[in-house]
Simulated assay, not measured.
Amino acid sequence: MSILKTRITDAVKAAMRAGDKPRLGTLRMISAAIKQKEVDERRELDNADVLVILDKMVKQRRESVEQYESAGRDELAAAEHAEIAIIGEFLPQPLTDAEIDALVTAAIRDSGAEGIRDMGKAMGLLKPQVQGRADMSDVSARVKAHLQ
């Protein structure tokens, strides 16, 4: 079992003991997403796979927050923010803007990308390095800006 899955399982147990229902609900949702992916792929997930799931969950919640806030549903947006905070506990430290720029520059150099058509090469190198640590749409925009 991956270290990240173990941490999530331990957090579920702690939330159950503490009677923290909102936190427990979010942690169970994370566990269910991991188990579903394992069943679908018929293999045990490693830390990188779990990070991809967590990153996707945070992205979905950010999109929901935008929709709720534009619709004036602040209570639902607050609930999504709370879930983002809980999921974020299991993600690695986010990269700073300077770190992202350095990784983008290195990936463009290492991939030999010379224009927008080569953007996929650079993104292929970047994705494993920034997964769960930076918003991929932001990284993609930075790569695109460097290649133009």
Score class of each variant (00 low, 15 high):
96 T>W: 03
78 A>R: 10
148 Q>P: 11
1 M>I: 15
119 M>N: 12
75 E>C: 11
101 D>C: 07
6 T>Y: 15
16 M>P: 10
118 D>V: 05
23 R>E: 11
142 R>Y: 02
50 V>Q: 01
2 S>H: 12
148 Q>I: 14
135 D>C: 01
118 D>H: 07
51 L>T: 02
38 E>Q: 13
19 G>H: 08
131 Q>M: 15
140 S>E: 10
77 A>Y: 05
19 G>Q: 11
104 V>N: 01
45 L>M: 13
127 K>T: 14
44 E>W: 14
56 K>R: 04
6 T>I: 15
79 A>S: 13
12 V>P: 03
83 E>C: 15
59 K>M: 00
45 L>H: 08
55 D>H: 00
109 R>F: 13
36 Q>M: 07
42 R>L: 08
37 K>Y: 02
139 V>H: 00
52 V>I: 08
35 K>G: 08
21 K>L: 10
13 K>W: 12
116 I>C: 15
89 E>T: 05
33 A>D: 03
4 L>M: 13
42 R>Y: 06
106 A>D: 04
96 T>C: 12
70 S>P: 03
53 I>Q: 00
75 E>M: 12
69 E>Q: 04
22 P>D: 08
147 L>H: 12
16 M>S: 14
49 D>W: 03
4 L>C: 11
133 R>Y: 09
125 L>H: 02
141 A>R: 07
62 R>N: 01
70 S>E: 09
22 P>Y: 09
65 V>S: 07
58 V>E: 00
25 G>H: 12
19 G>S: 10
140 S>V: 12
137 S>R: 09
22 P>I: 07
137 S>Q: 13
148 Q>T: 14
77 A>L: 08
86 I>L: 11
142 R>E: 06
50 V>R: 00
110 D>A: 09
130 V>P: 01
92 P>I: 02
121 K>V: 13
111 S>F: 09
68 Y>H: 08
110 D>F: 09
26 T>I: 07
130 V>N: 01
122 A>G: 09
92 P>Q: 05
103 L>G: 06
62 R>F: 00
75 E>V: 12
119 M>G: 13
112 G>Y: 11
125 L>V: 05
127 K>G: 14
36 Q>D: 04
53 I>D: 00
15 A>L: 09
4 L>R: 05
71 A>W: 03
120 G>A: 14
6 T>K: 14
22 P>C: 09
126 L>T: 10
26 T>D: 10
73 R>F: 09
86 I>D: 08
108 I>E: 00
42 R>V: 03
2 S>R: 12
147 L>G: 10
86 I>Y: 05
118 D>I: 05
115 G>L: 14
113 A>L: 03
135 D>Q: 03
88 G>N: 06
134 A>Q: 01
104 V>M: 07
72 G>S: 04
46 D>W: 14
109 R>D: 07
99 E>G: 07
120 G>L: 15
39 V>T: 05
32 A>M: 06
57 M>L: 01
16 M>T: 13
28 R>M: 11
107 A>C: 04
26 T>C: 07
94 P>D: 08
65 V>A: 04
136 M>S: 01
104 V>Y: 01
102 A>S: 08
102 A>W: 03
29 M>T: 08
13 K>D: 13
26 T>P: 03
57 M>A: 00
107 A>P: 02
70 S>Q: 09
131 Q>E: 15
100 I>L: 08
132 G>V: 02
59 K>L: 00
96 T>R: 09
7 R>C: 14
95 L>A: 10
